[in-house]
Amino acid sequence: MAQEVLLEVKDLHVHFPTADGLVKAVDGLNFKVLRGETFGIVGESGSGKSVTNLTALGLIKRETAQISGEILFKGQDLLKLNSEELRKVRGKELAMIFQDPFACLHPFYRVGDQLVEAILCHEKMPKKQAAERATDLLASVGIPHPKERFRDYPHQYSGGMRQRAMIAMALVHNPDLLIADEPTTALDVTVQAQIIELIEKVKTEFNIGVILITHDLGVIADVAQRVLVMYAGRGAEMGTIDEVFKSPLHPYTWGLLESIPRVDSKGTRLVPIEGSPPSLINKPAGCAFHPRCPHRFEKCDKEIPAMQDRGGGHPEACYLSIEDKKRIWAEREARRTKAAS
């Protein structure tokens, strides 16, 4: 059974003109998100993860950015909607939660009232009814004593509770797609797991799609079905968790995987990726990763590689031949394991 495509991003470009030059935050990006799946997006800071999703929600000011391409949400191009049409989608069918729950709730309003407001801006109903619904939602995201907590201010909540409240706020209208932009980065490790679990529970219960943006590969491996690796505003590699984690094909993905500690092979050396992310104003010619790539060859700085299936079973954007990729990854794995023993 083919799953419904919720979101399809086609050749998206988001450029910001600045005094220093054109910042190419997103530069030709393609991906799809299906209903019922958790779609992970990973990449370093500045790789365009957040900008992509803020663009989808219309939270990037169109006057300050040059946006081209398509963002089809349930078949409708979000980039063609006017601001009022977009507002009606936002928070209703398409909801988003953010990185820092400490800063994301208004400090002067009661948490409950902020939920009520979210309910009433898309649906007319008596305030009392909205308040009851908000209380139920607080309970359903695991906030104890929701009736009392409804009347509390954000600063009386712990970080984890605030993120729960944010999730409750995102769920008020049963959205089809939930975008979680680094939802756990600002939280304690123990709380992180609870929040991720909650997002998973919500996904199954409401049968929605989730985009999980993070630089925590462990979280992605845990909960996502598919993952997109982004580098400098473009896709580097995309596939199922098994494909990308077990047989990665892009040197950047290799670098990412080698730079996280693994419990199963204790003592494995962590190998950082040399260099730093490129400037988004003067991107390297050709593949943006080539200056940091130990396997680069002539072709790499000539032309931008498209992200496509090059015989490895899932789309990626590297000019190396499939045989080379498999060989190099096997060698790198072997070297790492050897160093561990």
């Binding site: 929600l57 939270l59 601001s83 507002r87 009606k88 989608v89 936002r90 928070g91 209703k92 909801a95 988003m96 953010f98 820092d100 800063a103 994301c104 709730l105 208004h106 400090p107 309003y109 407001e117 979210a118 801006c121 898309h122 944010m166 706020m169 995102a170 008020v172």
Partner: peptide, 20 residues
Amino acid sequence: EDYIRTARAKGLREKSVTRH
């Protein structure tokens, strides 16, 4: 501020966002 972005993200009208 982030909470103004939240206000927009939940679909508040610009008038309410300004009030926040």
